[in-house]
Amino acid sequence: MSAKSGNDKRKMKSASRFYAVQALFQMEQSGTALDRVRAEFLEHRFGLEQIEGEEMIEGDISMFSKLLEEALSYQAKIDQMTDRALVAKWPIARIDPVLRALFRAAGAELVAMTTPPKVVIVEYMDVANAFFADGKEAKFVNAVLDHMAREARPEAF
């Protein structure tokens, strides 16, 4: 395998994380079922060259689907982990819905997938930077995910 193809795979996984956060956000906001949102993303976002003038990277369909399925399967556990990582007066229900979707996608990787925790943290900080321009959210994401990762996979630290 060439270095370029390895880099392309990494980019596809990163894109899948970004798309998963968008899909989880959309599911929560609209009440749309998993299968319908997944089909919409696969038909209208994956593999498109541009959306609103932005070049889109093709995502890893398998990873995207697994992130959505595991985020829903483990949502109660992930939300409890997130609550424990947040300040007591800011439970998950009170945070920005994009961040809530991000923590659910990241939590799915920490709880149900084999991605190294430090990779999960860095990747989702990048996702936060894609959604929020000022960088404060990425620092917040770093702190919360570090706490969640240490709870989910203490052996990795």
Rank of each mutant, 00 (worst) to 15 (best):
M1V: 13
S2I: 01
S2R: 09
A3F: 09
K4P: 01
S5G: 00
M12Q: 15
K13F: 00
K13N: 15
F18V: 10
Y19D: 15
V21Y: 02
Q26T: 14
Q26Y: 14
M27H: 03
M27F: 02
Q29N: 09
A33I: 01
V37W: 01
A39K: 15
F41W: 14
F41Q: 01
L42N: 12
I51K: 14
E52V: 04
E54T: 03
M56N: 06
I57G: 00
I57R: 11
E58H: 04
G59H: 01
G59Y: 06
D60V: 13
D60S: 13
M63T: 14
M63G: 05
F64P: 04
K66F: 04
L67M: 12
L67K: 02
L67E: 06
L68D: 09
E70A: 09
E70W: 00
I78C: 00
M81D: 09
M81G: 05
M81L: 15
A85L: 07
A85W: 05
L86I: 06
V87Q: 05
V87H: 10
A88S: 12
P91C: 05
I92F: 08
R100W: 00
R100L: 04
A101R: 04
A101W: 02
L102W: 06
F103P: 02
R104V: 06
A106Y: 02
G107M: 01
L110Y: 12
T114F: 06
T115E: 05
P116T: 06
P117W: 03
K118H: 10
V119N: 05
V122D: 15
M125S: 05
D126M: 06
V127N: 04
A128F: 13
A128Y: 09
F131A: 05
F132V: 07
A133Q: 03
D134T: 08
G135P: 07
V144H: 08
H147G: 04
M148T: 04
M148E: 07
R153D: 07
P154K: 01
E155C: 02
E155F: 11
A156M: 07
A156T: 02
A156H: 13
F157W: 13
